[in-house]
């Protein structure tokens, strides 16, 4: 297990380095940073001054190393639009996005896992059909539309929940449901497929032949094996939610990284975009690592590989 963990960790570091090169190259490929920083009305000598001041005239590898060392210390430079440190902006927005992503994933797991399990125990029953209906709806319904329907229902018709903002837990209920519902179908279908396959396996028959309680057979022997692909999927889903919750954040006016990323792209605020890409992809790498380690813990055969 230790050897496997170290191997995975090394791999994760390599991926993270690749990602950092990518996000550094992104800024340079988008154009001359000195021109972007100087603005429209700048003269050639202004641009040259900025190039000197920020060291854009140095060789690229040196600039990359300099940027990476600073980024590792939490210094992502200054936003071109707000003229404030990107790190402070991120510290402001990240908690909201992380909370939303975490809650949405928890929602998706809480709905998707039990429904998938029940659907697998009684395939083609009414509950299986209902679960299928829920998952097809979840996949087909546009997020922004579902969000607006919820707002109409629970903020206007029945004024129970605030329609926007991020002050209290109440603000997170509808965004969580919308974002979580979008992730539910895949988790449910994968759980169902995994459970169906595992429940037909020989070791489940052995477990029943031992006289174990059906709940033990189901939750210990079957679920542990069926849930392995769901773990990997959840990590991917969580990563996706961190970066892809723009629509939900915009509809509910939650000031998270999704919204910041979208606005920064439209303002060509390259240092901010670069920092968000780097931070979110690093989270993604960490999540994949956690999923891999969790799977190795669940299935001893993976540890050997």
């Amino acid at each position: 297990m230790l050897a496997y963990s170290l191997k995975r960790l090394l791999l994760a570091v390599l991926v993270a380095v690749t990602v950092s090169v990518g996000s550094f190259a992104l800024l340079r490929a988008a154009g001359d940073p000195a021109v972007a920083m100087a603005g429209h009305s700048a003269t050639a000598s202004d641009i040259e001054f900025i190039r000197e001041t920020y060291g854009f005239n140095r060789p690229l590898p040196v600039q990359y190393a300099d940027w990476l060392v600073k980024a590792l210390q939490g210094d992502f430079g200054e936003s071109l639009y707000f003229r404030m440190p990107v790190s402070r902006m991120l510290a402001d927005k990240l908690p909201t996005t992380m909370t939303l992503g975490g809650l949405a994933l928890a929602f998706a797991l809480c709905v998707g896992l039990p429904l998938g399990i029940i659907a697998a125990i009684r395939p083609n029953s009414w509950i299986d059909r209902t679960a299928l209906l829920i998952s097809v709806t979840g996949q087909a319904m546009p997020t922004f539309w579902f969000a607006l329907v919820l707002v109409v229902l629970f903020s206007i018709t029945f004024p129970l929940l605030p329609p926007s903002g991020s002050g209290t837990w109440k603000h997170f209920v509808m965004p969580t449901v919308v974002l979580g519902y979008y992730a539910t179908p895949a988790i449910m279908r994968l759980t169902r497929a995994g459970m169906l396959e595992v429940l037909a396996s020989d070791y489940i028959r052995t477990a029943r032949a031992k006289g174990l309680h059906p709940a033990v057979v189901l939750l210990k022997h079957a679920l542990r094996n069926a849930v392995i692909p769901v773990v990997s999927l959840s990590a991917v889903q969580f990563g996706f939610m961190l970066g892809g919750s723009v629509v939900v954040e915009t509809v509910f006016a939650l000031h998270g990284t999704g919204q910041l990323a979208w606005e920064s792209i439209s303002r060509s605020d390259l240092p901010t975009v670069q920092a968000i890409v780097l931070v979110l992809s690093s989270f993604y790498v960490v999540l994949s690592l956690i999923a891999d380690l969790l799977n190795a813990w669940l299935d001893p055969r993976i540890r050997v590989a």
Partner: peptide, 15 residues
């Protein structure tokens, strides 16, 4: 008690 034909798949790989 009962034992089965397929010893390779009759034990749970996770425990």
């Amino acid at each position: 008690a009962m034992i089965f034909q397929e010893p390779m798949t009759s034990l749970n790989p996770a425990f």
